[in-house]
Protein backbone atom coordinates (compact mmCIF):
# COMPACT_ATOMS: atom_id res chain seq x y z
CA UNK A 1 0.00 0.00 0.00
CA UNK A 2 1.50 3.30 -1.07
CA UNK A 3 2.12 5.64 1.85
CA UNK A 4 0.04 8.42 0.31
CA UNK A 5 -3.06 6.29 0.75
CA UNK A 6 -2.45 6.32 4.49
CA UNK A 7 -2.84 10.07 4.57
CA UNK A 8 -6.62 10.21 4.34
CA UNK A 9 -7.45 8.10 7.41
CA UNK A 10 -4.57 9.68 9.29
CA UNK A 11 -5.87 13.15 8.51
CA UNK A 12 -9.17 12.24 10.09
CA UNK A 13 -7.23 11.29 13.18
CA UNK A 14 -5.25 14.51 12.99
CA UNK A 15 -8.48 16.51 12.97
CA UNK A 16 -9.57 14.80 16.19
CA UNK A 17 -6.16 15.54 17.68
CA UNK A 18 -6.53 19.22 16.79
CA UNK A 19 -9.98 19.41 18.36
CA UNK A 20 -8.75 17.65 21.48
CA UNK A 21 -5.87 20.11 21.72
CA UNK A 22 -8.08 23.14 21.30
CA UNK A 23 -10.71 22.14 23.85
CA UNK A 24 -8.24 20.95 26.46
CA UNK A 25 -6.05 24.03 26.04
CA UNK A 26 -9.06 26.29 26.60
CA UNK A 27 -10.05 24.32 29.71
CA UNK A 28 -6.43 24.43 30.81
CA UNK A 29 -6.25 28.20 30.39
CA UNK A 30 -9.39 28.70 32.47
CA UNK A 31 -8.10 26.40 35.22
CA UNK A 32 -4.66 28.04 35.12
CA UNK A 33 -6.03 31.53 35.70
CA UNK A 34 -8.62 30.42 38.23
CA UNK A 35 -6.18 28.47 40.37
CA UNK A 36 -3.17 30.72 39.75
CA UNK A 37 -5.10 33.76 40.95
CA UNK A 38 -6.86 31.63 43.55
CA UNK A 39 -3.54 30.66 45.06
CA UNK A 40 -2.89 34.35 45.73
CA UNK A 41 -6.27 34.91 47.33
CA UNK A 42 -6.49 35.96 50.99
CA UNK A 43 -9.56 33.72 51.30
CA UNK A 44 -8.14 30.51 52.76
CA UNK A 45 -10.82 28.30 51.25
CA UNK A 46 -10.13 29.47 47.70
CA UNK A 47 -6.41 29.36 48.30
CA UNK A 48 -6.62 25.87 49.81
CA UNK A 49 -8.70 24.50 46.95
CA UNK A 50 -6.27 25.97 44.43
CA UNK A 51 -3.22 24.53 46.18
CA UNK A 52 -4.82 21.07 46.49
CA UNK A 53 -5.80 21.05 42.83
CA UNK A 54 -2.37 22.20 41.67
CA UNK A 55 -0.46 19.75 43.85
CA UNK A 56 -2.57 16.75 42.86
CA UNK A 57 -2.50 17.36 39.13
CA UNK A 58 1.14 18.35 39.04
CA UNK A 59 2.25 15.62 41.42
CA UNK A 60 0.72 12.67 39.59
CA UNK A 61 1.13 11.26 36.12
CA UNK A 62 -1.19 12.42 33.32
CA UNK A 63 -1.87 8.87 32.20
CA UNK A 64 -2.83 7.94 35.77
CA UNK A 65 -5.22 10.91 35.84
CA UNK A 66 -6.68 9.91 32.49
CA UNK A 67 -7.20 6.28 33.49
CA UNK A 68 -8.63 7.34 36.83
CA UNK A 69 -11.24 9.57 35.21
CA UNK A 70 -12.14 6.91 32.62
CA UNK A 71 -11.96 3.68 34.67
CA UNK A 72 -12.13 4.58 38.34
CA UNK A 73 -14.61 7.48 38.43
CA UNK A 74 -17.55 5.37 37.23
CA UNK A 75 -16.96 2.97 40.10
CA UNK A 76 -16.94 5.84 42.59
CA UNK A 77 -20.13 7.03 40.95
CA UNK A 78 -21.78 3.64 41.40
CA UNK A 79 -20.95 3.76 45.10
CA UNK A 80 -22.56 7.20 45.33
CA UNK A 81 -25.49 6.25 43.16
CA UNK A 82 -24.73 8.66 40.30
CA UNK A 83 -23.79 7.79 36.75
CA UNK A 84 -20.24 9.09 36.34
CA UNK A 85 -19.33 7.17 33.22
CA UNK A 86 -17.49 9.68 31.04
CA UNK A 87 -17.31 9.17 27.28
CA UNK A 88 -13.69 8.99 26.09
CA UNK A 89 -13.84 12.49 24.65
CA UNK A 90 -14.95 14.03 27.93
CA UNK A 91 -12.48 12.04 29.98
CA UNK A 92 -9.72 12.98 27.56
CA UNK A 93 -10.43 16.71 27.45
CA UNK A 94 -10.96 16.79 31.21
CA UNK A 95 -7.74 14.97 32.07
CA UNK A 96 -5.64 16.97 29.60
CA UNK A 97 -7.20 20.30 30.58
CA UNK A 98 -6.93 19.77 34.32
CA UNK A 99 -3.36 18.55 33.96
CA UNK A 100 -2.12 21.40 31.82
CA UNK A 101 -4.11 23.87 33.93
CA UNK A 102 -2.16 22.91 37.04
CA UNK A 103 1.14 23.61 35.32
CA UNK A 104 -0.22 26.82 33.85
CA UNK A 105 -1.31 27.94 37.31
CA UNK A 106 2.27 28.28 38.43
CA UNK A 107 3.09 30.35 35.36
CA UNK A 108 0.13 32.65 36.04
CA UNK A 109 0.96 33.02 39.71
CA UNK A 110 4.62 33.70 39.03
CA UNK A 111 3.89 36.34 36.40
CA UNK A 112 1.38 38.17 38.61
CA UNK A 113 3.82 38.21 41.50
CA UNK A 114 6.50 39.54 39.18
CA UNK A 115 4.54 42.74 38.61
CA UNK A 116 6.32 45.45 40.57
CA UNK A 117 4.92 46.47 43.95
CA UNK A 118 5.11 50.05 42.73
CA UNK A 119 2.23 49.39 40.39
CA UNK A 120 0.05 48.22 43.25
CA UNK A 121 1.02 51.30 45.26
CA UNK A 122 0.10 53.60 42.39
CA UNK A 123 -3.20 51.76 42.04
CA UNK A 124 -3.89 52.08 45.75
CA UNK A 125 -3.02 55.78 45.72
CA UNK A 126 -5.57 56.26 42.94
CA UNK A 127 -8.13 54.38 45.07
CA UNK A 128 -8.59 51.33 42.85
CA UNK A 129 -10.09 48.36 44.71
CA UNK A 130 -7.76 45.36 45.01
CA UNK A 131 -9.85 43.51 42.43
CA UNK A 132 -9.65 46.42 39.99
CA UNK A 133 -5.91 46.58 40.56
CA UNK A 134 -5.57 42.88 39.74
CA UNK A 135 -7.68 42.85 36.59
CA UNK A 136 -6.89 46.27 35.11
CA UNK A 137 -3.31 46.88 36.21
CA UNK A 138 -1.54 43.64 37.18
CA UNK A 139 -2.93 41.03 34.81
CA UNK A 140 -2.43 43.02 31.59
CA UNK A 141 1.21 43.45 32.60
CA UNK A 142 1.58 39.83 33.66
CA UNK A 143 0.12 38.21 30.56
CA UNK A 144 2.96 39.02 28.15
CA UNK A 145 5.30 37.45 30.73
CA UNK A 146 3.29 34.25 30.64
CA UNK A 147 3.29 33.79 26.89
CA UNK A 148 6.62 32.00 26.36
CA UNK A 149 5.76 29.40 29.01
CA UNK A 150 2.20 29.10 27.68
CA UNK A 151 3.63 28.39 24.26
CA UNK A 152 5.64 25.47 25.65
CA UNK A 153 2.64 24.17 27.58
CA UNK A 154 0.46 24.31 24.46
CA UNK A 155 2.91 22.14 22.51
CA UNK A 156 3.20 19.81 25.51
CA UNK A 157 -0.59 19.51 25.50
CA UNK A 158 -0.60 18.66 21.81
CA UNK A 159 1.84 15.84 22.45
CA UNK A 160 -0.16 14.62 25.43
CA UNK A 161 -3.31 14.20 23.31
CA UNK A 162 -1.68 11.06 21.91
CA UNK A 163 -2.35 9.39 25.25
CA UNK A 164 -6.07 9.72 24.66
CA UNK A 165 -5.69 7.02 22.02
CA UNK A 166 -5.22 4.64 24.94
CA UNK A 167 -8.84 5.09 25.95
CA UNK A 168 -9.97 4.46 22.39
CA UNK A 169 -10.29 8.05 21.22
CA UNK A 170 -9.91 8.10 17.42
CA UNK A 171 -7.09 10.59 17.33
CA UNK A 172 -4.00 10.49 15.15
CA UNK A 173 -2.15 7.98 17.33
CA UNK A 174 -5.21 5.71 17.46
CA UNK A 175 -5.69 5.78 13.71
CA UNK A 176 -2.02 4.99 13.26
CA UNK A 177 -2.36 1.95 15.49
CA UNK A 178 -5.40 0.77 13.51
CA UNK A 179 -3.56 1.09 10.21
CA UNK A 180 -0.48 -0.57 11.62
CA UNK A 181 -2.46 -3.52 12.93
CA UNK A 182 -4.00 -3.96 9.50
CA UNK A 183 -1.06 -3.32 7.20
CA UNK A 184 1.88 -4.19 9.47
CA UNK A 185 3.81 -1.23 8.04
CA UNK A 186 5.14 0.23 11.29
CA UNK A 187 8.05 2.24 10.01
CA UNK A 188 6.19 4.16 7.31
CA UNK A 189 3.10 4.87 9.35
CA UNK A 190 4.93 6.01 12.47
CA UNK A 191 7.29 8.16 10.44
CA UNK A 192 4.34 9.85 8.77
CA UNK A 193 2.58 10.64 12.03
CA UNK A 194 5.78 11.82 13.68
CA UNK A 195 6.08 14.38 10.91
CA UNK A 196 2.39 15.23 11.18
CA UNK A 197 2.75 15.91 14.90
CA UNK A 198 5.87 17.92 14.21
CA UNK A 199 4.02 19.98 11.62
CA UNK A 200 1.12 20.63 13.97
CA UNK A 201 3.54 21.65 16.71
CA UNK A 202 5.23 24.15 14.42
CA UNK A 203 1.89 25.66 13.43
CA UNK A 204 0.85 25.87 17.07
CA UNK A 205 4.14 27.53 18.03
CA UNK A 206 3.70 30.07 15.23
CA UNK A 207 0.17 30.86 16.39
CA UNK A 208 1.36 31.34 19.95
CA UNK A 209 4.09 33.66 18.73
CA UNK A 210 1.50 35.82 16.95
CA UNK A 211 -0.59 35.89 20.11
CA UNK A 212 2.52 36.77 22.10
CA UNK A 213 3.30 39.77 19.93
CA UNK A 214 -0.24 41.10 19.97
CA UNK A 215 -0.52 41.12 23.77
CA UNK A 216 2.92 42.61 24.12
CA UNK A 217 2.50 45.52 21.74
CA UNK A 218 3.01 48.13 24.45
CA UNK A 219 6.27 46.58 25.55
CA UNK A 220 7.88 47.14 22.21
CA UNK A 221 6.89 50.83 22.01
CA UNK A 222 10.15 52.70 22.34
CA UNK A 223 11.14 56.35 22.12
Amino acid sequence: MHWVEFLKPLSEGAWVTIQLTVYSTILGAVMAFASGIGKLSPNWFIKGASVVYIEIFRGTSLLVQLFWLYFALPIAGDALGIDLRLPPVVAGVLALGLNIGAYGAEVVRGAIQAVSRNQYEAARALNFTPRQALWRIALPQAIPEMMPSFSNLAVQNLKDTALASLISLSDLAFKAEQLRNFYQNSETIYTIILFMYFGMALVLTAMMRILESSVGRWRRARR
Binding site: V155, K159, D160, T161, A162, L163, S165, L166, A173, A176, E177, R180, S186, E187, Y190, T191, I193, L194, Y197, F198, A201, L202, T205
Partner: peptide, 21 residues
Protein backbone atom coordinates in the same frame (compact mmCIF):
# COMPACT_ATOMS: atom_id res chain seq x y z
CA UNK B 1 13.34 20.22 17.86
CA UNK B 2 11.86 17.17 16.18
CA UNK B 3 12.21 15.04 19.30
CA UNK B 4 10.83 17.82 21.46
CA UNK B 5 7.76 18.42 19.34
CA UNK B 6 6.62 14.81 18.89
CA UNK B 7 4.81 12.63 21.44
CA UNK B 8 6.68 10.18 23.66
CA UNK B 9 4.03 7.54 22.95
CA UNK B 10 4.69 7.58 19.21
CA UNK B 11 8.45 7.64 19.69
CA UNK B 12 8.09 4.63 21.96
CA UNK B 13 5.97 2.71 19.46
CA UNK B 14 8.46 3.56 16.76
CA UNK B 15 11.38 2.15 18.71
CA UNK B 16 9.44 -0.88 19.88
CA UNK B 17 8.15 -1.98 16.49
CA UNK B 18 10.77 -0.66 14.09
CA UNK B 19 14.07 -1.45 15.84
CA UNK B 20 13.58 -5.26 15.58
CA UNK B 21 13.26 -4.87 11.80
Amino acid sequence: EFIRDTPLLVQLFFLYYVLPD
